[in-house]
Design a binder for these strands. Structure first.
Length: 486
RNA sequence: GCGGAAGUCGUAUAGUGGCUAUUACCUCAGCCUUCCAAGCUGAUGACGACAGUUCGAUUCUGUUCUUCCGCUCCA
């Protein structure tokens, strides 16, 4: 799918070499699909979070943020459907590589034999229910093998053992394991918003339509976690749940689809790198859903999902918690001339993977340039981040250490560091310092030289064009601030 | 989870059943220099882990961990 060759291995090496992303527990050989952000990666991450938060919360008077706990009441995951949907025993056929839910496989078999042998089918179903209730995986496999249940694709009976796949991580609450309740690490941040819906609505005096935003960690015990930071077991989401009047969800869904794509394009990434993918098969809670996909080194993949979740979640929580999740709408319905009254709001969700966004920005920024001339071979690796995302905004170099140039540069550093992240460097030749900054994606470098002492001008060097300009020292701050604002 | 490939300093690499494991870049210290990876001198730093075979294993075998590619999965 990707038009260029897959340069993901180069990006991974670069991220490690220059302090963006390290394998977790590196000195112990790493931990599968877990990564740590290094000194520059954490800045990039923070910048992306800030931009998202600003665009969602600060730019919308009717959206507020929260930060809910990772641990939540276990019943929440029953209400949300996560427990039922992801605790099913599965079995794989070794020939067709097809994976089945064990209950589906057995039920399918029973339907087939029911015509000729109703008694056997009923017996099997009773046995299956008993085995499922007892979590007897060995017994379940035996049942499948004994009755010669075949894979529909390969037609063979070559099965793996029955295994339980639950995508949620669990742990115990309380110090004594036997007495304690099993609780889950949240597999999505959305439920933390739903269960706080009324808290926020009442204390914030929010009127529908309104939204609640949250950035936070989520955990999924993925069977196959791969693709560098694309699919990790511990990851961070940026979600916003928008509560609307029933019947208006379609227009809000379209609104947020467009608004979110605009946000992506504002990162300076070309529209041709994005596409929408509309879901045909909808999840149990949705009445419309699409993904925003980005052209990663390994092809088009989902970065963000926009889902019209109906009133499924709030209704479920109302049922399980026995607490009303209703909103009283005072606005007048023109059709009846009366207020809309009490209802469970519908929800339109935007949910973007922060780590995926980082990978997106990195793979978009990563560039290898050939700068060879006839005399000399030369190349550079440059991360062409939009200035607002760059970990370091400005690097300040004295051309040389002596003659008071270093002191001047330090002064500038002290003045500017309050406004944005600056980096000071006096080691090595100036060209080398420029190239080092290219590799970190620093959009601007200024060099203090002897002329600075005379007329207060400095050389500003631009990352992307490698052009240099002589400007007044006092103008530099405005140049940088202007660039990181847009 | 299945199939394939691979693990050597921070990165990229060479090589070997046996002497101090190669090279480049990076990094660090010093000298010199100063507007695009300059030069010189010196330094740090690696055979993924655990077993087995062997007089001796980084090299062969097995297990394991990790990564990449393809499939599969993906509320």
């Amino acid at each position: 799918m990707a038009t260029e060759q897959n340069n993901l291995p180069d990006i991974i090496s670069h991220c490690k070499e220059y302090g963006f992303i390290f394998p977790s527990s590196d000195i112990y050989d790493g931990l599968s699909a877990v990564y740590d952000y290094g000194q520059w990666g954490v800045e990039l991450k923070k910048n992306i979070k800030d931009i998202w938060w600003k665009s969602m919360v600060y730019m919308h008077e009717n959206i507020v943020g929260i930060d809910s706990a990772i641990f939540m009441h276990p019943t929440i995951w029953k209400a949300s459907g996560h427990v039922d949907n992801f605790s099913d025993p599965m079995i794989d056929n070794l020939d067709s590589k097809k994976r089945y839910r064990v209950d589906h496989l057995i039920e399918g078999f029973c339907e087939q034999v029911a015509d000729s042998n109703k008694q056997l089918a009923d017996e099997l179903l009773v046995k299956m229910d008993a085995l499922l209730a007892a979590d007897d995986f060995v017994g379940l496999k035996q049942l499948i093998v004994d009755n010669n249940m075949k894979c529909a694709v390969s037609g063979t009976c070559n099965w793996t053992d029955v295994r339980q796949f639950n995508l949620m991580f669990s742990t115990q609450l309380g110090s004594v394991a036997e007495d304690s309740d099993t609780i889950y690490l949240r597999p999505e941040t959305a439920q933390g918003i739903f269960v706080n819906f009324l808290n926020v609505q009442k204390t914030g005096r929010m009127k529908i339509p309104f939204g609640i935003a949250q950035i936070g960690k989520a955990f999924r015990n993925e069977i196959v976690a791969r693709g560098f930071i694309f699919r990790m077991r511990e990851f961070e989401q940026m979600e916003m749940q928008f509560f609307v009047r029933p019947g208006t969800q379609k227009e809000w869904y379209e609104y947020w689809k467009e608004a979110r794509m605009k946000w992506h394009l504002a990162l300076g990434i070309s529209a041709s790198k994005y596409r929408f993918h509309d879901h045909v098969k909808l999840a149990h809670y949705a009445d419309a859903a699409c993904d925003i996909e980005f052209d990663f080194p390994m092809g088009f993949k989902e970065v963000e999902g926009i889902h019209s979740r109906t009133n499924f979640d709030l209704s479920q929580h109302q049922e399980y918690s026995k607490k009303k999740q209703m909103y009283f709408d005072n606005d007048i319905d023109e059709a009846t001339g009366k207020p809309y009254g009490n209802y469970i709001p519908y929800v339109v969700e935007t949910s973007i993977g922060l780590d995926r966004t980082i990978l997106m920005v990195l793979s978009e920024a990563y560039t290898v340039e050939d700068l060879s001339t006839e005399d000399k071979k030369d190349s550079r690796v440059v991360l062409k981040f939009p200035p607002k995302l760059a970990p370091i905004k400005l690097a300040i170099f004295p051309l040389m250490k002596k003659d008071g140039l270093a002191e001047l540069a330090r002064e500038m550093m002290n003045e500017y560091r309050e406004d944005f992240f600056c980096f000071y460097e006096e080691k090595d030749a100036i060209g080398k310092r420029y190239r080092r900054m290219d590799a970190l994606g620093t959009p601007f470098c200024v060099t203090i030289d002897h002329q600075t002492k005379e007329d207060g001008t400095v050389t500003i060097r631009y990352r992307d064009s490698m052009d240099q300009e002589r400007v007044k020292m006092s103008d530099v701050k405005a140049i940088v601030l202007n660039a990181i604002k847009s």
